[in-house]
Design a protein around this nucleic acid. Sequence first.
DNA 1: CGCCTTTATAACCACCGTCTGATATTGTCG
DNA 2: CGACAATATCAGACGGTGGTTATAAAGGCG
Lengths: 129, 129
Amino acid sequence: MHAFDVLGEPVRRRIIELLADGEMSAGEVGAIVQREFGISQPGVSQHLRVLRENGFTTVRPQGTRRLYAVDPAPLQELDHWLERYRSFWNQRLDALSTEIARGRSRRRPDSGESPSDRRTRRRSGGTGG
Amino acid sequence: MHAFDVLGEPVRRRIIELLADGEMSAGEVGAIVQREFGISQPGVSQHLRVLRENGFTTVRPQGTRRLYAVDPAPLQELDHWLERYRSFWNQRLDALSTEIARGRSRRRPDSGESPSDRRTRRRSGGTGG
DNA sequence: CGCCTTTATAACCACCGTCTGATATTGTCG
DNA sequence: CGACAATATCAGACGGTGGTTATAAAGGCG
């Protein structure tokens, strides 16, 4: 199951939000989620399983409880996928900070492009890694 | 349909990737996607519809063609959702320096936890933004 | 106009994911 | 050990999503 698919589920998204503040037991999560979404305990447990099996959470047993916590790896993967599109809303700032951070001295010459050729140019092309 | 759900579909994710390089006609997208995924033209068209209706693309008619381009709004929304979790993988430097700076020496009596059991602590205690 | 191209819609169907009730598993306590 | 609490798993039902074929809509061109 793809990471995007895992978070496509509202209940699972909510669980991750709850765990963002720190680890919680399955019961604590369940109490909130069951109240908010009106689903049963097994329902919550299965969502926790999907999150677990897809690497979104870690579990630590404490007595008869299971303490769940966010594992950031898949979230970071999504973040990485989105990175490509960040220029769409960050265009100037992102490119600028990248240049500064990397200390890039290599700059491409300002190539003038006739505006009638392409209306909205999205990628300047070539700065990618 | 939630933005995460829209991108849960591999075909739709691929379409967005294709459009990242600039606008393409439905036919150009279709040719590639049909070859890569082995689905029919209406199949692609329906995925384009989902993307369109959920704000992931803009369309601009040119003769009998439809030129699709990425609309970044929903992607930015996802990026915003992920922002909350960015500290989980950015905190390495940040939290480390914070811990060192605080020089935390006071610890709760932690009787039964073996060193291998301890994982990296996630809650750094409110560094705030 | 009539035909071709391009794209979208309609109708239908199969499969996958999620829900539920029942039950198993594991740990704590008296 | 037996009762209870917390959580997971099982089996089955159901709905939604994505696939297909057939067809419609709309523009270009001789």
